[in-house]
Simulated assay, not measured.
Amino acid sequence: MARVRVERLVTSGTFSLDDGTWDVDNNVWIVGDDHEAIVVDAAHDADAIAEAVGDRALCAIVCTHAHDDHINAAPELAARTGAPVLLHPDDLPLWKQTHPDRMPDADLADGQPLSVAGVELTVLHTPGHAPGAVCLYAPALGALFSGDTLFAGGPGATGRSYSHFPTIVESIRDRLLTLPADTTVHTGHGETTTVGAEAPHLQEWIDRGF
């Protein structure tokens, strides 16, 4: 049996919200084996993502939240592969800003299991960066896919519309820092970290209003 693996593809484009636009590099995570996979955050480049998936069956396109840089390639990738686009419904207002004529195919819910290649990932609703932000926890892989909720060095940004700093701190404290310390955190941008590396800084984040 082929071993389940985690692959990172970095794609580049822009992020736009609140009348501002910024250049960004996004991590697209592909989780699976030689036969099937899921994509976490279809960012910017459907061609590159489809090429990375190759001839594997794509089981789902999971959106950790609906900021445009995380979902802009999702409909095209879905059209090419037949995979459903999954999003927490609390992020539909953000989704509609980017894709007003194309709804996600199914909702994500807290505690929902997603399976790929015999490995289960659990959806954790972690609002704060966005109302419907989620993380995916795969204990068998010792992995957390954190989207923009938790980065190496601190929480995701909360200075724009639909975000709330006390809420993201609560999500990280109650839902993420309770995971095993050696859990690898695969982030939406930048480098990976671990739960244990971020846990000691919680009070610093609160004091700084990160």
Rank of each mutant, 00 (worst) to 15 (best):
M1I: 14
A2C: 14
R5Q: 15
R5M: 12
R8D: 06
V10Q: 15
T11F: 10
T11S: 05
S12I: 08
F15W: 15
S16D: 09
L17W: 13
D19S: 15
W22C: 07
W22Y: 15
D23P: 15
D23E: 15
V24M: 05
V24E: 07
N27G: 11
V31M: 05
G32M: 08
D33P: 10
D33Y: 10
H35V: 06
I38H: 13
A42F: 10
H44S: 06
H44E: 10
D45T: 07
A48C: 00
I49L: 03
A50F: 11
E51I: 14
E51W: 13
A52P: 00
D55P: 01
R56I: 08
R56C: 04
C59M: 10
C59N: 07
A60S: 08
I61M: 02
V62L: 10
A66F: 10
A66W: 05
H67S: 11
H67Q: 13
D68W: 04
D69E: 15
D69P: 04
D69I: 05
H70K: 12
I71E: 04
N72F: 00
A73M: 05
E76T: 12
E76K: 12
L77N: 08
A78W: 02
R80S: 01
T81R: 09
G82I: 10
G82C: 04
P84Y: 11
V85D: 09
V85T: 12
L87P: 04
H88V: 07
L94P: 09
W95A: 06
W95I: 04
H99D: 02
P100L: 05
D105R: 06
D105A: 00
A106P: 05
A106L: 05
D107G: 06
L108I: 05
L108K: 13
L108Q: 06
A109T: 15
D110G: 03
D110E: 02
G111D: 08
G111S: 09
P113F: 03
V116A: 10
A117I: 03
V119Q: 08
V123A: 03
L124K: 09
H125P: 08
P127N: 06
A130K: 04
G132C: 00
Y137F: 15
P139W: 03
P139N: 12
A140M: 11
G142A: 01
G142P: 12
G142D: 04
L144R: 06
L144Y: 10
F145T: 12
